[in-house]
Simulated scan of single mutants.
Amino acid sequence: MNNSVPLLQVKHLSVHSLQHINFSLFAQECMCIQGTSGSGKSLLLKALADLIPAQGEVLLHSQKQSDIEPSQWRRNVTLVPAMPSWWYATVKEHFSCNIDHWLTQLALSPSITQQPIHTLSTGEKQRLALCRALQHNPYVLLLDEPTANLDPTSQSLLEQFLFNYFLAQPDRSIIWVAHHPSPWLIRRAKRFTLHGGYLSEDD
C-alpha cells in the first residue's frame, strides 16, 4: 500500500551534526538506516520522536509535529530505544492490555509478565519494550537496533512479526536502525545511509 500522500514527511531536519535531513515514508513501508557508530542514527530517531529539539519539519498525516501535543505525538510516532528504560518492578505493571498473543509470536512465554524486570535478559527486555510500544497502537515505529541482542531464531521471529503483523495494517510504517541488517531485512526494506550528517538512499 503506497498512497500518494506520505504517512511521515521529514523536511530539512537539522539537529547537532545532522544537516537538512529529507525523506518521505509511505504506509506499510520499512526504512532501514545504517551508519557508523556516532553518525547520528539514534539522534535522528530521538528528533523524529520529539524527544529533543530540532530545526525543520516533521509531519504525520500532513500534520506538523509542532502542532501536536508531545505526549500524543510520541504515542503516534514511538521510539523503541536500544536500551529501554523500566520504571516499575515487574513486567506486568508496564502493560494495560493482554499481550500474550504478541509474546508467543516473539518466542516469549506469557508467564514472563509475572517476572521482576531485574531477572530479564537484554534480549527479553528488547522484545518486551516492543510490545510496550505496540499497546499504544502507533502509526510509526522507530526501532533502534531491536535485534542487537537476539539469537538468529529470535531475530527472525521478530522481523517476521513486524512485517506480517505491524506493517500488514493500514497506515503503519517502520524506521529501523540496524548496524548490521540481516539479509531478510535488506530484501524487504528501503535502505539509507547516514554519513557526515547527511542521509542518502542506497542504490
Rank of each mutant, 00 (worst) to 15 (best):
K46Q: 15
K92H: 13
K46M: 06
L60F: 09
D100T: 07
P81D: 12
V80A: 03
T122M: 11
Y88W: 12
L130F: 09
I117E: 09
H61D: 10
L142R: 00
D67L: 09
A49P: 07
L141R: 04
Q72S: 08
V80R: 06
V91H: 09
A107Q: 08
W87T: 15
G123W: 14
P53E: 01
P81R: 15
T104P: 04
T90Q: 13
T90I: 08
C131R: 05
Y88A: 05
L51Y: 03
L43A: 01
K46C: 07
T90Y: 10
P138E: 11
G123A: 10
K92M: 01
E69M: 06
E69I: 08
L106R: 02
D50W: 14
S62W: 00
A82S: 13
S66H: 10
S66K: 12
L43I: 05
L44C: 02
Q114L: 12
N98R: 07
T113W: 02
K64D: 11
T78R: 15
Q55M: 05
H61W: 09
V80Q: 04
H101R: 15
R132P: 00
V91E: 05
P53W: 02
I117K: 10
L128T: 03
H94Y: 02
W86L: 05
P116Q: 13
N76Q: 15
I68R: 12
S111K: 06
L142V: 00
V77L: 05
H101A: 12
S62E: 13
L142Q: 01
L130V: 14
A89N: 05
F95R: 06
S111E: 13
P138R: 11
L106W: 00
S62G: 00
